[in-house]
Nucleic acid binder design. Sequence first.
DNA 1: AACGGATTTGGGAACCGTTCTCATTAATGG
DNA 2: CCATTAATGAGAACGGTTCCCAAATCCGTT
Lengths: 134, 134
Amino acid sequence: MSPQQTRTRATAQGAAVRDALRAEDGFRSAQSVYAVLRADGQKIGLSTVYRHLQAFTDDGVVDVIHNPDGETVYRFCGDTPGGHHHHVVCRSCGRAEEVEGSAVERWAEQTAAKAGFVDVDHTVEVFGLCPDCA
Amino acid sequence: MSPQQTRTRATAQGAAVRDALRAEDGFRSAQSVYAVLRADGQKIGLSTVYRHLQAFTDDGVVDVIHNPDGETVYRFCGDTPGGHHHHVVCRSCGRAEEVEGSAVERWAEQTAAKAGFVDVDHTVEVFGLCPDCA
DNA sequence: AACGGATTTGGGAACCGTTCTCATTAATGG
DNA sequence: CCATTAATGAGAACGGTTCCCAAATCCGTT
């Protein structure tokens, strides 16, 4: 199979974005990643952060979801490359844990098929308060 | 508990917004509702549309989701008041059908509990192409 | 019917996150 | 070391949503 090509080649900024995201175990907004990098003394532009975030998303290295407030948030998920999965996300600190969801996958498939829908995709995210934030 | 009170009293504009939404069987954006009303000759402001959409949402008469593009879209769901449910949404025309999801509810509950999360909420939406759009 | 207080309305400004533009800078390889 | 190409980042542009506030409307009371 033709491997999905990275849109940007490995650069210092790209690595910085990836590392910043990898350092967190939760979903972060682009702005927040940018803020962290700048606070860290890194020289990087907001556009670049968005660019790499997009590229990583295209590569499947980063997961994207929209939290209940509609914000776009990203998370490093390179550990389970390609593997489709879902999360339990803390709505307070953003921390997230991957969860197994094959049952949900099947349910989504069947449900959509029953309604006659094709080319199906789905969004399944569970939000709550993690033990620490509760 | 104190019942969630409607934020606005029944007004002509409120009714117009509700009717516009009820007339559609899919999720629509605030802007789109506004456009339809204006095209219909109605005198109404964008702010007012947003206001009523919010009020209806608070009252549970309208469902809100963020589609994969991050847009906020609303749907009239007064038919199943209070009843928590999910949808199969056409990503092309916005048409949506309610689906039964008690299995998913249980899965979400259990999954969150297993991770030690509390005050759990979840997002489950299935997107695809409806028979007509396929 | 007329008045007065409270509520709703809506136009426009403000806001915020994201995307776009493009001149500058850095990397590549010949 | 030069030339070509890709990446960068500052700021402008954009689109959706919220905020602000003066004008309009509604409602209970005389």
